[in-house]
Lab assay of single mutants.
Amino acid sequence: TTEYTFTDDEEARRAIEELKKRGLTFRYEKHGTTWRVRVD
């Protein structure tokens, strides 16, 4: 499991789109302004 942290909404959304394109399994949660994206 790899975890990424983003504080920029645009950056987080781009990363999420990219992961979807690659067909990877991931989860994300947003805490205030911080996004945590975990890739299995």
Rank of each mutant, 00 (worst) to 15 (best):
E18Q: 10
E10H: 09
R14D: 06
Y4F: 11
E18K: 07
K30V: 08
G23P: 00
R22P: 00
I16F: 05
E18P: 00
E17T: 08
E18R: 06
I16M: 13
V39H: 02
I16T: 02
T25D: 09
K21F: 05
T33D: 15
F6T: 01
D40S: 12
K20H: 08
E17A: 12
T25S: 13
T34V: 14
E18T: 07
H31M: 12
R38L: 15
Y28A: 13
A15K: 09
A15C: 15
I16Q: 00
L19F: 14
F26A: 04
E3Y: 14
R22Y: 07
R27A: 12
Y28D: 02
T7P: 03
R14E: 08
T2Q: 11
Y4G: 01
L19W: 09
G23H: 05
T34E: 13
R13E: 08
Y4T: 03
E10D: 12
Y28N: 00
T33F: 09
E3W: 15
K21C: 12
I16C: 07
E10V: 10
A12W: 07
R38M: 15
A15F: 15
D8Q: 04
L19G: 00
R13S: 06
V39D: 00
T7I: 06
E10N: 11
E3R: 04
T33I: 08
I16G: 02
R36H: 14
H31K: 11
V37F: 08
F26R: 00
G23A: 03
E3G: 03
H31Y: 10
T33S: 12
T2A: 09
K20D: 04
F26V: 15
T1C: 15
I16V: 04
F26T: 04
Y4A: 02
L24H: 06
T5H: 07
E17R: 12
Y28G: 02
R38T: 15
F6H: 01
H31G: 03
Y28S: 05
A15H: 08
E17H: 08
D40A: 11
R14H: 09
L19D: 00
V37G: 00
V37L: 07
R14M: 10
G32W: 02
R22T: 06
E10T: 09
K30G: 01
E17D: 10
E29W: 15
A15V: 14
I16N: 03
A15D: 01
V39G: 00
